[in-house]
């Protein structure tokens, strides 16, 4: 068990080093920082001095090491576009994205699992078939279209909910939260649904197909042959076996939520890191892009690590083998 966890942590660190390398390469090879920092009137001496200052004359490995050292301290350089430290901008924006991701993640997981189990158990029922058909529309509808439709319906036509922004936020120890005001909560509704709906459909379809797969296994037949009731078979035997593969994917989905937030934030002009990132791409603001990549990879890797460890607790085969 311990060696399993150590192995996973080792892999996570490796992933971080690789993404760090990608981020660092973006700095080094995309656009010339000297160009970005010095004006038109520059001398070779200026360039050389700056190169030395920035450590650009050092070998690649040394530069990479220094980049990592800086990154660990939250120092990602200065945004080309805003002229402020990237770390500071990210910190300011992070709460908006995290709150949005949290609400829609919970929504996606709870509703996804419940509907998936329902459609698997009642696989031939009318309700299950309707849900499955609607879910296919859900998968075919791009997130941004869902957002636009919701805005049109609830903001433009009905005027019930705001069409953009976070509403009023309260600052709690440097964390600006929208959970504590009525307008903040109202503003969360549409973006959370938009962001969570697609993930919910995916989770639901996955739970359904995994569960149908499990229900075909011999041990379920044997449980039937022993006369166990459908309730016990479905919710005790089948559900637990279904969750083993589903948990991994849910971990990945949670990661996607943070990335898909980019789209939702654009549609709702939600002031989070996603909106920041999309603007950075449009203006080729490399430090912001690199920092976002690092930030997101830390989150993904953390989620995956937790999922892997959780996995080992659920599956006795892993627990004993390790």
């Amino acid at each position: 068990m311990l060696s399993y966890i150590i192995k996973r942590v080792g892999q996570s660190v490796l992933v971080l080093l690789i993404t760090g390398l990608v981020a660092f390469s973006m700095f080094t090879f995309v656009g010339d920082p000297i160009d970005n920092m010095l004006g038109q009137e520059r001398t070779q001496a200026d360039i050389d001095r700056l190169r030395e200052q920035l450590g650009l004359d050092q070998p690649f490995v040394v530069q990479y090491y220094r980049f990592l050292e800086q990154a660990v301290q939250g120092n990602f350089g200065i945004s080309y576009r805003q002229g402020r430290p990237v770390g500071e901008i990210l910190l300011e924006r992070a709460p908006a994205t995290l709150e949005l991701a949290l609400v829609s993640g919970i929504f996606a997981i709870l509703a996804g699992i419940a509907l998936g189990v329902f459609t698997a158990i009642r696989r031939d029922g009318i309700a299950a078939n309707v849900i499955m058909s609607v879910s296919l529309i859900g998968v075919s509808l791009p997130t941004f279209l869902i957002g636009i439709l919701l805005i049109y319906l609830f903001s433009v036509e009905l005027g019930w909910l705001p069409s953009f922004g976070r509403g009023d936020v309260v600052d709690v120890g440097g964390w600006s939260t929208g959970f504590l005001t009525a307008s903040g909560l109202k503003a969360l509704i549409l973006p959370s649904i938009t962001l969570g709906l697609y993930q919910m459909t995916l989770i639901m379809r996955l739970v359904r197909s995994e569960m149908l797969e499990v229900l075909r296994q011999d041990y379920i037949r044997f449980a039937l042959a022993r006369g166990l009731s459908n309730r016990v078979i479905n919710f005790r035997h089948a559900l637990k076996n279904t969750m083993v593969p589903v948990i991994t994917v849910i971990g990945l989905q949670l990661g996607s939520i943070i990335a898909f937030a980019i789209i939702t934030e654009t549609v709702f002009q939600w002031p989070g890191v996603g909106l920041l990132f999309i603007n950075a791409i449009q203006f080729v603001d490399i430090p912001v892009m690199a920092a976002y990549l690092m930030l997101i990879s830390v989150m993904f890797v953390a989620i995956n690590l937790i999922v892997d460890i959780l996995y080992a607790f659920i599956d006795p085969r892993l627990r004993v083998a390790a």
């Binding site: 990945l252 080729v284 990549l293 993904f300």
Partner: peptide, 26 residues
């Protein structure tokens, strides 16, 4: 497969955006 795992950790839309962003930069 390790490369695949690492990439799978990142949603494809994000990877596509990054590639697009970098390509735009160069």
């Amino acid at each position: 497969m390790r490369a695949a795992d690492v990439q799978l950790t990142f949603p494809s839309i994000l990877v596509a955006m990054l590639i697009f962003g970098v390509a735009k930069g160069i």
